[in-house]
Write a protein that binds this DNA or RNA. Sequence first.
DNA 1: AAATATAATTAACACTGTTAAGTTTCCAAA
DNA 2: TTTGGAAACTTAACAGTGTTAATTATATTT
Lengths: 214, 214
Amino acid sequence: MGIVERKEKQKQDIKKMILDASMKLFVEEGFDNVTIRKIADLIEYSPTTVYLYFKDKDEIFFQLSQVGFEKMLELNQNLTTIANPLMRLYKMGENYIHFGMTNPEYYDVMFIQRAPMDCISKMEELEWTAGSIAIESLKGLLKDCMDKGLIQKAPVEIVAMAIWGLVHGMVSLAIRDRLESISKKLIEKDQLIKMMHQSINWFLGTIDTSVKKK
Amino acid sequence: MGIVERKEKQKQDIKKMILDASMKLFVEEGFDNVTIRKIADLIEYSPTTVYLYFKDKDEIFFQLSQVGFEKMLELNQNLTTIANPLMRLYKMGENYIHFGMTNPEYYDVMFIQRAPMDCISKMEELEWTAGSIAIESLKGLLKDCMDKGLIQKAPVEIVAMAIWGLVHGMVSLAIRDRLESISKKLIEKDQLIKMMHQSINWFLGTIDTSVKKK
DNA sequence: AAATATAATTAACACTGTTAAGTTTCCAAA
DNA sequence: TTTGGAAACTTAACAGTGTTAATTATATTT
């Protein structure tokens, strides 16, 4: 039955077209400018056709966020070469900040935008999403650091929460233009990133047991 | 000229009515359910009347966020009694988390929602907003801690960014239902708050120079 | 070729923020 | 007290939004 196969492929192609169009609008014009009608215009179908391939707008954004997670996972490939877990942790934070600051729109759907209810239940079905892979690897890394005595022993979940909070907090405040108030003068993006690096550097320095305290 | 005074007062009263109605919708039905028409319904005026008192919807939310900042400032009154700056820092973080978790809608407009451009320029005019007061007091507190040798010396801005990031990160992830993935099972709000407390506790413990490191 | 299943579209609904134009209300000067 | 004008408010409308039911066009199967 080659015909049903081809049909299925066509279906997937159109799905991809819709996602690509959404992404294009998303990155170029921002979240609020992604409308069903604009998507339909781009792929040269009628607006209602979109609903033949996606339940609603939320599902499209959910799919986009999944793409974002994969991108992030890919970015973290550069960690594999780093043996020292504490160094890896630092690089991981650096990656996170870099990803968020250079892909603010992706970051938005992944971590800032309200997650629709039925996506949450979908997550629970999957049980092993790209997002949970990231957080699990962070927890593993922390455990590794503790086992090797590189950082103080503490409940992994608590420390993971703090570290994720730290980087997410800085990135999301930056993306939403709230970090202006930290210094009196305006700060440009590059310098902001530099400051974030200093922050995680300072942070990891303080929890690093090998650094001598006076 | 008592008449022009009374007129002015009336104007302020209606402004307050609009803000109160917005707030009510905001808290009870969430951000997306605050519409000009619903506000108008509540105050029993026509929708266009709202525009005689506020430039646009953004201005209403900006005003609401200002109210939020004042509420937060008020909450921080309990800090004055604490002499030890490190203890104050801990309590400040606890306050922040408490405020965010019990007033998620306020927190939203204050720190998460996209800030409209012309509000930012308005901020620069004011130059001394409730928001910047909070961040300045955090910086002052940190300087105090460093001067007294309670925590390691480091650039205040960098440390302030890290700490604000830490608490904001945890709260905003919680509000947007992203913290579910940190533990495999569902976590209820109260326990989440407890975990956040443990996080800042652990964090301040590690930067506290008086705590002995093994 | 006719019947059926699939795919795409048109038209419409119930909303949204916002504006121009028209009414009503109120206060001060003639 | 009447009249003029300003201020306050409303009606109607515009240009959008997500989404659905009903309809038409296109393939596929019998």
